[in-house]
Write a protein that binds this DNA or RNA. Structure first.
Lengths: 142, 142
DNA sequence: AAATCTTATTTGTATATACAACTATTATTT
DNA sequence: AAATAATAGTTGTATATACAAATAAGATTT
């Protein structure tokens, strides 16, 4: 690869992966923004809609986020009446409200739009291949 | 790919790329932390050491960061006597101090350690291939 | 020359995220 | 049964980053 002043870090996975993450998240936030959500919250709602009564620790694993981050995301969605939290002993169970369930289809459509946008830019098979590689690498480095 | 509750987003580039970026940045911060820097600052110093008198807008392009972010990074390094800033008209030129120049070799060694660590986890050719794909994707989505 | 457009940078403010420390609960060992 | 360890979740605090607005300087058009 031709590394000029303009792309001296093209061979650096640290900066490339951060740049990719920022760019794709921006795209996602644009699409999810149309339905009034930032992407993290959209994914959280999708997850809780799918797994009724899921625990924060499981969400943490699925979304690959630190437990404290998940606590904060949930708290915000509880505050906006999208989620409910029930505590039993040391465990917490998270449930979607009607408001969240009603939004599910819209979230999925927005998600599809994000996918279509990046697939359009990267190519369909390319983007599938990339997602696969990036996911596997993320796991290996965790 | 086998998507159970544990990895429902394995086909989702948004979350995979964010997870990869966080994991690799954590690794980088561990290595650069040994020489007292967070990874962003290390890269900034490397860049300014290489391109004496570089302008923030150029740094912004190279590091793929927003101009405001670059301003903040530079300000912090100026405060710690790693960089100097000269303003001429609307332009600003950034220079390394002796402190930064002396650190250059250590930064490069830490950078090598980061590279070795992720190459060890991902495989050498794999990690090269991944960096290449991720960099190209980041550009295409920008 | 004045008015307008463009470019470069900085500042105010907001957000996502994490780590470390803490609380509370349950499980295990002695 | 008491003591200890492990697990689940939350809170305080810090950081990186961005957007939008502001400032300032140059360039271009009229």
């Amino acid at each position: 690869m031709n590394c000029t002043k303009e792309n001296s870090f093209c061979n650096c996975l640290i900066y490339a992966s951060n740049a990719l993450a920022r760019n794709i998240t921006k795209m996602a936030d644009e699409e999810f923004g149309k339905i009034g959500l930032a992407s993290s919250y959209a994914f959280l709602l999708m997850t809780v809609n799918k797994y009724n009564g899921i625990q924060p620790s499981e969400i943490s694993q699925i979304m690959m986020l630190a437990p404290s981050t998940v606590t904060r995301l949930i708290a915000k969605m509880v505050g906006q009446n999208f989620l409910e939290r029930m505590t039993e002993g040391k465990n917490t169970f998270v449930y979607p409200t009607e408001k969240s369930k009603e939004m599910d289809i819209e979230i999925k459509l927005a998600w599809k739009r994000v996918y279509d946008r990046y697939a359009e830019n990267l190519g369909i098979s390319e983007s599938g291949h990339l997602a696969d590689m990036v996911y596997k690498a993320a796991i290996k480095l965790s």
